[in-house]
Amino acid sequence: MRKRCLEVVHRLAKKNKNVIFVGSDLGVGVLDNFKKELPGQWFMEGVSEQHIIGMAAGLAMSGKTVYFNTIATFITRRCLEQNAIDLGLANLKVRLLGSGGGLVYAPLGPTHLATEDIALMRSIPNMTIVAPCDAEEMERAMLASESWDGPMYVRIAKGGEAVVSRPELGFELGRAIQIQEPGEVLFATTGVMLQRALEASALLAKDGISSGILHFHTVKPFDSAALLQAAAKSRAVLSLEEHTVLGGLGSAVAETLAEGNLERPPLFKRLGLPDAFPDQYGSQNSLLERYGLSAPLIAAETRRLMSERLTPAIGG
């Protein structure tokens, strides 16, 4: 996914001399062709993330569109103030390409995990947040970024994910994609949780439970109209994210449902990472499993939610 993401940057840069790529201290050989072909639009600036975002702001204020890639958490957690002031307040065309969104770097431990990146970026006015589910959707997102105003954070997954996005469903930044028609259950997904939702949906179908999937490749701006429309047709809504349940997709869904005042509010559950630093290494998959984000565990949680009795009203 990262490879495709950076390839598109290269393509955009060939077309437009004002497109600039900046890396921090990326792996050897990254974008060698880009460097060779367009040396004036290619920068590798070292382990200086705060500086790079400021520099990107200065370039963008001078008419450039800047794509900056490094490890997601070093962009979001370390540089929050630069993101807010230099990019958000100034509303500049800088694209932050965060590698290893979520639990990708599980073996490397909590210093390298990006499990609250979306929450941090979501709190910054003017910031757009995109988390594609596969390389194809990444390509569509990156192509759309060319004409999109303001700063954008792009969450990059591990790579090699099964391609599940479908070109015929279109792609527009800020618009959720209905992957499956609403059923009894609605899964709201972002990033690679779409794949898990599809698997969980197949498991539930065997039990006769139908499920719809609404995929939010863009978490901000949040497509609340699409959510409310689909939620109104569903008995239960589950948000799925490889991210803390605080402040990310699940929060956006919860806020929208809470203020949506649907006539028949659906049952609701946020599935994501707990508010805790992971206490294990292992792999991305093993941690996802541990936190209930494997397809069988998602299906089980869905069944449990469907059978949940409503909390009686106070005094009722």
Binding site: G54, G58, M61, D86
Partner: peptide
């Protein structure tokens, strides 16, 4: 005013971006 400042330590990097852009252009 060329940049919103007040949070300290931001201006030099922004200026470097502008200086690089001047050279490119």
């Amino acid at each position: 005013v060329e940049a919103s400042t007040g949070a300290l330590g931001h201006g030099l990097s922004i200026g470097i971006g502008m200086a690089l852009a001047a050279r490119m252009d």
